[in-house]
Simulated assay, not measured.
Amino acid sequence: MKIEEIKHPELKNHIQMIYMHGENQNQNAIEKTESEIKECIKDKYFIISIEDGEPVKIPYANDGEYLVPIFTDEHEYTMGMQYFSFNVMDENKEYVIEKLDYFKKLKEDPNFLGYIVNIARVSYIINLALL
């Protein structure tokens, strides 16, 4: 599978709906959309940045917590890597196309907070309960 073949507009739509439900403080709709996200990502392949064979970890706090970025299409990946370069985080970065379950071992790490979708906009964190 090539990077240009990865497209997940349905996930982007779900993410937009999560924000709208959050603004309306509609917790039931948020939970429903999160279950739809869980179904959406179950068998999909995503673009994941790696360095030295490991997923890139974006520091989130001072105590070692981190997020792992995933990208839903080539444009997101390009923008995300530009974001990395602005923050001097892009040295030796490559990408792989994998299913998220390939990285489920990360769930065992207490410092792993989840996957962040579209790092350039910091638009959504897929929490561990959705995996």
Results as ranks from 00 to 15, higher is better:
residue 1 M to Y: 09
residue 3 I to R: 09
residue 6 I to H: 06
residue 6 I to W: 05
residue 8 H to T: 00
residue 10 E to A: 11
residue 12 K to F: 10
residue 12 K to T: 10
residue 12 K to P: 00
residue 13 N to C: 03
residue 13 N to H: 10
residue 13 N to Q: 12
residue 14 H to D: 00
residue 15 I to R: 05
residue 15 I to Y: 10
residue 16 Q to S: 10
residue 16 Q to P: 02
residue 17 M to K: 14
residue 18 I to P: 02
residue 19 Y to K: 12
residue 20 M to Q: 13
residue 21 H to S: 12
residue 21 H to A: 15
residue 25 Q to D: 15
residue 27 Q to W: 08
residue 27 Q to G: 03
residue 27 Q to P: 01
residue 27 Q to S: 15
residue 29 A to N: 11
residue 31 E to S: 11
residue 33 T to P: 02
residue 33 T to W: 08
residue 33 T to F: 08
residue 34 E to Y: 06
residue 37 I to T: 01
residue 38 K to Y: 03
residue 38 K to V: 00
residue 39 E to W: 05
residue 39 E to I: 10
residue 39 E to Y: 07
residue 41 I to S: 00
residue 41 I to D: 00
residue 42 K to Q: 12
residue 42 K to P: 01
residue 43 D to P: 01
residue 45 Y to W: 04
residue 46 F to D: 08
residue 46 F to T: 01
residue 48 I to W: 05
residue 49 S to Q: 13
residue 50 I to S: 07
residue 50 I to C: 09
residue 53 G to A: 10
residue 54 E to W: 05
residue 55 P to E: 12
residue 56 V to Q: 08
residue 56 V to P: 09
residue 57 K to R: 14
residue 58 I to C: 09
residue 59 P to C: 06
residue 60 Y to L: 12
residue 64 G to H: 04
residue 64 G to L: 09
residue 65 E to F: 07
residue 66 Y to P: 07
residue 66 Y to K: 02
residue 66 Y to C: 09
residue 67 L to N: 01
residue 68 V to I: 11
residue 72 T to N: 04
residue 75 H to W: 07
residue 75 H to K: 14
residue 75 H to G: 08
residue 79 M to F: 08
residue 82 Q to S: 13
residue 83 Y to C: 11
residue 84 F to I: 01
residue 84 F to V: 02
residue 85 S to L: 03
residue 86 F to T: 08
residue 87 N to L: 14
residue 87 N to T: 06
residue 87 N to H: 15
residue 88 V to N: 11
residue 90 D to L: 07
residue 91 E to N: 13
residue 92 N to E: 12
residue 95 Y to G: 04
residue 95 Y to P: 03
residue 95 Y to V: 12
residue 96 V to R: 13
residue 97 I to S: 06
residue 97 I to D: 03
residue 97 I to H: 04
residue 98 E to A: 14
residue 99 K to A: 07
residue 100 L to Q: 07
residue 100 L to I: 10
residue 100 L to Y: 02
residue 101 D to I: 06
residue 102 Y to Q: 14
residue 104 K to E: 13
residue 108 E to P: 04
residue 110 P to T: 12
residue 113 L to M: 15
residue 113 L to D: 07
residue 115 Y to M: 02
residue 116 I to R: 12
residue 116 I to C: 12
residue 116 I to T: 10
residue 117 V to R: 03
residue 119 I to Y: 14
residue 119 I to T: 01
residue 119 I to S: 04
residue 120 A to D: 02
residue 121 R to V: 04
residue 122 V to F: 14
residue 122 V to H: 13
residue 123 S to H: 03
residue 124 Y to N: 01
residue 125 I to D: 11
residue 125 I to E: 03
residue 126 I to R: 04
residue 127 N to H: 15
residue 130 L to S: 09
residue 130 L to V: 07
